[in-house]
Amino acid sequence: MTRATILYGGHEYVVARDEEQVRVEVDELIADGGGWLSVNHGRGRLQPAHLWVDRGVSIAVIDTTQPE
């Protein structure tokens, strides 16, 4: 399963997209002057969350895809 973990504000979030797709989405949001990145938060039962992404906001994207 393709998965990326996002570190934002000292918390971990996950998305079912690969790391490169997330980086492209973040770059587009910043180019548009900022916007909301849809992610999931939690373990087991995931809850939808939205992170504000803009210039000067620290965000890390990590490829956490599980090998098959």
Rank of each mutant, 00 (worst) to 15 (best):
M1H: 09
M1F: 06
T2W: 03
T2V: 15
A4L: 07
A4V: 06
I6L: 15
L7A: 12
Y8D: 01
Y8H: 14
G9M: 06
E12T: 08
E12H: 11
Y13I: 01
V14Y: 04
V15G: 08
V15T: 15
V15K: 07
A16W: 07
R17V: 00
D18A: 03
E19P: 00
E19N: 11
E19A: 15
E19L: 05
Q21R: 14
V22L: 13
V24F: 06
E25F: 03
E25Q: 15
D27L: 11
D27K: 13
E28A: 15
I30W: 00
D32T: 07
D32W: 00
D32N: 13
G33H: 09
G33F: 08
G33S: 11
G34Y: 02
G35T: 06
W36Y: 11
W36I: 02
L37G: 02
L37Y: 02
L37S: 02
L37C: 04
V39F: 05
N40S: 15
H41W: 13
G42A: 11
G42S: 10
G42R: 10
G42Y: 09
R43W: 09
R43V: 14
G44K: 14
R45E: 12
L46A: 14
L46I: 03
L46V: 09
Q47T: 15
Q47F: 06
P48W: 06
A49E: 13
A49C: 06
A49R: 13
A49D: 14
A49Y: 12
H50I: 00
L51Q: 05
W52S: 05
W52R: 13
R55F: 07
G56K: 13
V57T: 09
V57M: 07
S58D: 11
S58C: 00
I59H: 01
I59Q: 04
A60F: 07
A60C: 07
A60T: 12
V61K: 01
I62Q: 12
T64H: 01
T65H: 07
T65V: 03
Q66E: 15
Q66Y: 11
P67E: 12
E68F: 04
E68I: 05
